[in-house]
Structures are given as structure tokens and as C-alpha cells.
Design a protein around this nucleic acid. Sequence first.
DNA 1: TTGTGTTTTACGACCTCC
DNA 2: GGAGGTCGTAAAACACAA
Length: 296
Amino acid sequence: MATTGGSNMFFDASCNGNMIFLGHRDPVFRGPRSFLSIDDMSRKRPFFSTHEELIEEEFYDEQLPEKKRRLTTEQVHQLEKSFETENKLEPDRKTELAKKLGLQPRQVAVWFQNRRARWKTKQLERDYDLLKASYDSLLSDYDDVVKENMKLKSEVVSLTEKLQAKEMNPKEGVAGPRHDQLLPHNDNPDVIEGPVKAEDRLSSDSIGSAIVDEEGLQLVDSGNSYFPGNDYSYCMDLIGNVQAKEKNDYPKMDLIQSEEDDCNDVKSGYFSNVFEAAENQNQDGDGESLGWWVWS
DNA sequence: TTGTGTTTTACGACCTCC
DNA sequence: GGAGGTCGTAAAACACAA
């Protein structure tokens, strides 16, 4: 008795008269899955698709134990076509396909199982790529916002210092600076001009940070401001804009946070774009239609 | 030719649904 | 409980570089 296959597949070319074992045996022996006569073999032998192939392989089979055979290209083509229309296999369709392709129904079922597994693996890879691209894009946007934030903070600090300097020396200069004179001349957002409080330098990432500390605001708002109304309003608008920006300029991040709060519906909210894109991409023709795919 | 990595076929174990 | 699903894995078949 010749035995082959690590998964308990065995073949007995000599036993039981004209009967042979064909199939697999469980680790705990419960008998072969099928007994086939020689005649049955020519009709039902699993790994051959056509009678011609069976004859062609006869000598080979006499010499070697049961071998795993690949399906022919035509068989695979037909199976792929069937899989495209419906990736699940009803019993009727399985029987019909098996008959049509000269395979055992079990082979057709196994082929569909493996095909679904392959498709799932590929789909996971695609989803990963899409999510990664989306993440990279968001990261880039976030970096831009952070840079813009730092630039605006440095502007505020610069203007505040100028205001304080003017308050200390009200006699300097006859007229107050115009708007364009208040604008900072600092092209490097990372460099904060003038003397800046330590906490101002350190507080670059929190909404409640002391961009303009209360002392500074009180100074500006003392009623003794050097600046005429328009300039004062300008400064306050600027400060307000900065604060509003810090509070409101992260819509995408807020949305992601909300999705994190509710992970049950992966396809809703922000990620819906990703999956819609994935579906569109697939429908656009990389050969894998998603028409029947049910996200779970 | 041979060693090695990948793909394909097939199975057992386990899970879910009817 | 049976049918059919997924998951993990074994092993044959295949591809390809050295």
C-alpha cells in the first residue's frame, strides 16, 4: 500500500481485488471516504477532467500513487466565470458545474472555497492600501494646519510685543502704526520674534494656550490704548481668528475622532469615502467585481 | 540542476444557520 | 443534527534565480 500526502491522503492500488481506496482518511481512522471500482474510477476519478486526459495519464498513474492535479485552464476559466456571477455555490449549480467540467462536486466546492479565500486576501490588501493612502493624505493636511497654526501664533506674539512696547513708551512716535505696519515680517514660522514668555513658546498645541496671555489682553483693553479704534479692533480680530482657528480648523480630525467613538459602522462617515472608492476602483475594471461582496 | 518561494488543490476543525 | 461556511495548514505543482 502506497501512501502519499501529509494530509492523510492515501492510495491503494492493489487491495480488495478490483477495488481501490481513493480519498482521504481522518487522523483517527474512520475508513476511506469512498470505495470505487475500476470502472467507477474511469468515470469519477477526481483529478482528471476529460476522458482523453484520463487515457493520457494511465501509464503515469500505474507508476505513481495518487497525485494532486491542477485543473485545466478551461476548467479554471469556467469556474472563474461562474464565480464572477455568484461567489457562493448552491447545490444545484455545484452539481451542474461538476457535470459540465468533468469534476467531482466536492472539487467544485473546494475550488470555490479556495477562490473566496484568495479573493478575501486580495480585498484586504486593497483595503489596506486605500486606508494607508487616505491616512497619508490626512497626515499631510494635518502637518499643513500645524504649520499654519504656528505661523499665526508667531504673528500674535509679535503683535502683542509691539503693543506692549507702545504702552511702555507712549511718547514714541506721533502716530500709531497702520495695519500693514502691525503685520509681522517673519517668514519663518518656526522663529518667534522678540522676547516671548516661556509658556508662549511651549504652548504650541493646545487650545487653551497662552497665545496672548491675560496680562497682555488687559493691557490692550485698558482703555488707555495708544491705538485708535480701528487698530485695536484689528488686533482683537486677529486674536479672535487665531483662537477660532485653533478651535475649529480641524474638521477632518474631529470627524475621525467621531468615527473612532463608533466603530460599529465601518462604512459610514469618513471611511465611507474609502470604501466607495474601493468599490468604484474595482468596478472600474481590475477584474474583480464587487457586486456581490457583502462587507462584514 | 537545484534550491527556494509562490500558487493551487485538498483537507480537518470549528462555527453558524436552518 | 446536517449542510455549508471560514480558517489554518499540508503537500503537490509551478516559477524562477543562481
